[in-house]
Every structure is written in structure tokens, then in C-alpha cells.
């Protein structure tokens, strides 16, 4: 048999290699090296971390390819980059750059308010955010090879990531207990592809890796998301908006490995300097929230 590239197994497989790890947002190659030295399994290359996107306002787009290429040169771990929801040309450009994963992300300003990118034909795998099982399965139907909770990026408030993890895991548990004749009606109610529900029902989990994202700022937050059943953690603003990024980054990496060991977590959490200031999600006007972006 000839070598086959860009199969779903290798797309999904890279995410499987990232499990139990931390993917960190970085805006410079210097940040990228700090992240790699701290034990990140991958970095997300972007121009502004979500907290700054939130503060600056305006339209948030794909980063300058020059910046992404510099970050790719700086580290040996996988490099991810974000494109806007529905912006297939930004995704094509990221594919041409050879990034390792594309995040079709609600953190950027959506380019399309009705449709997402059809992701199957791309050679680069995609990760997409989800708030519930229906949304996760719609993204998988379009070809995503990895899912993350949306949370509420750039807030340092973990409450939305917890909500989305609870909803997804809860819906999986509920689905497993449904008699077959009820699955189709649930598919209608949840906006979920029927075949996808059947697969989740038999596996007892999503068929791809599911990370936590959106508001994780401390080692305890990261361990919480792992205890809720997530496969790993994205940390955006939480590291480089904190007082001592290198130290905090290394601590979050350790916390994801030792997420069940409270004595170690206590040790890991000591003397990390100031966390990012953060902003309670409940204090943010509805029109400024990003988790609702996605269709």
C-alpha cells in the first residue's frame, strides 16, 4: 500500500497525542519558547490574546502569516492558528503556511453568520468550539477532528467552560440511557446529526478528543476541567496576562498531569504571582460575549 496522508485517523490522531496536555496562546516567538520550555504540548499563534481582543474591540481576524511563520520556526511542538468562523480563505492560507491545526474560532469576529467552513477537504485538521453535544456533532459533521469547549475566552472566569463541559458530558450520559426510539427526537431537539448521536451513544464519549477552553487561569481551574472529563486544556490569556507567565505555565502543565492529586496541586499552586485580573462573565453585556458565535 502507498503512503496515505491527511486521513481522518492522522487528523484525529494528532489531537490524541496532545491529550493530558496544555495548549497555550502565544503572540511572539519569545512567548512560544517560554511555552515550550514550560512543557506546553502545542501553541496557538495569534496576534492578540483574547483578553486584548476583548479590550481593543474592532474586528479580530487571522494573524499575519509572518508572525505565524516566526512562531513555527521558534518551537518543535505543534503550532495551531485561528481563522474566523466561515472564512475558508483564511483557512486555506493557514493550510498553505503548514500550521499543524486550524482553530475555526469564535474568539475572532465571524466572517459568516450562517455557515461554518466545510473542513473535510483540508489536509490540516481543525478544532472547533462547542457549548453542547449538538454543536460538537455539527462541527464533526463538517469535518472537525477535535472539539473544545467554548467557555468565555479572555475573561479568566472558568464558569462558562465548566457549564459547557457539564452540558456536553451530561448529554452524553443522558444519550447512553435513552431507548433507541427516542434518539431521533433528541437529534431534532439538540440540532445534532442522527448518525453522530448513534456513534456517541455506543462509544460513551465523543469520537474525537475534547479539550477545555475559555477562561482557565489557574492550575486549579485546569485540574477542575480534567476532573470534569476533558482530555486536556487550552489556556489563552491566563498565562501571558499573569504576573509570572513562565512559572504559571509550568504549574498549569503539572496540574493537568496530576489533576487528581490534591496534595501535589496544593504544592503546584504555591507562589505563582498574580493571576490575570479577569472579568466575571456575569458582568459582561450579552452582546460582548463570544460563546454564542457558532451556528
Amino acid at each position: 500500500m502507498e503512503q496515505e496522508t491527511a486521513t481522518f485517523a492522522v487528523k484525529k490522531g494528532l489531537a490524541q497525542m496532545l491529550k493530558g496536555g496544555v495548549i497555550m496562546d502565544v503572540v511572539t516567538s519569545e512567548h512560544a519558547r517560554i511555552a515550550e520550555d514550560a512543557g506546553a504540548v502545542a501553541v496557538m499563534a495569534l496576534e492578540r490574546v483574547p483578553a486584548d481582543i476583548r479590550a481593543d474591540g474592532g474586528v479580530a481576524r487571522m494573524s499575519d502569516p509572518e508572525l505565524i511563520l516566526k512562531i513555527m520556526d521558534a518551537v518543535t511542538i505543534p503550532v495551531m492558528a485561528k481563522c474566523r468562523i466561515g472564512h475558508m480563505v483564511e483557512a486555506q492560507i493557514l493550510e498553505a503556511l503548514g500550521v499543524d491545526y486550524i482553530d475555526e474560532s469564535e474568539v475572532l469576529t465571524p466572517a459568516d453568520e450562517t455557515y461554518h467552513i466545510y473542513k473535510h477537504p483540508f489536509k490540516i485538521p481543525f478544532v472547533c468550539g462547542a457549548r453542547n453535544l449538538g454543536e460538537a456533532l455539527r462541527r464533526l459533521g463538517e469535518g472537525a477532528a477535535m472539539i473544545r469547549t467554548k467557555g468565555e475566552a479572555g475573561t479568566g472566569d472558568v464558569v462558562e467552560a465548566v457549564r459547557h463541559a457539564r452540558v456536553i458530558m451530561g448529554e452524553i450520559r443522558r444519550l447512553q440511557n435513552l431507548p433507541e426510539e427516542e434518539v431521533m427526537t433528541v437529534a431534532k431537539e439538540w440540532g445534532a446529526p442522527y448518525e453522530g448521536l448513534l456513534e456517541v451513544r455506543s462509544l460513551g464519549r465523543l469520537p474525537v478528543v475534547n479539550f477545555a477552553a475559555g477562561g482557565i487561569a489557574t492550575p486549579a481551574d485546569a485540574a477542575l476541567m480534567m476532573q470534569l472529563g476533558m482530555d486536556g486544556v487550552f489556556v489563552g490569556s491566563g498565562i501571558f496576562k499573569s504576573g509570572d507567565p513562565a512559572r504559571r505555565a509550568a504549574a498549569i502543565v503539572k496540574a493537568v498531569t496530576h489533576y487528581q492529586d490534591a496534595a501535589l496541586l496544593a504544592e503546584i499552586s504555591r507562589n505563582l504571582g498574580e493571576p490575570m485580573v479577569g472579568r466575571a462573565v456575569s458582568s459582561i453585556p450579552a452582546e460582548e460575549l463570544t460563546a454564542g458565535r457558532g451556528w
Partner: peptide, 15 residues
């Protein structure tokens, strides 16, 4: 040699 075949786009399956 790490990443000897290139980046993710070069990941592959073979017999």
C-alpha cells in the same frame, strides 16, 4: 530525528 517527515500535513498511514 524528531518530526523527521515534516509537519502534521505530512503525517501518514502505511503498511
Amino acid at each position: 530525528m524528531r518530526n523527521a517527515f515534516g509537519r502534521q500535513v505530512d503525517s501518514f498511514e502505511v503498511d
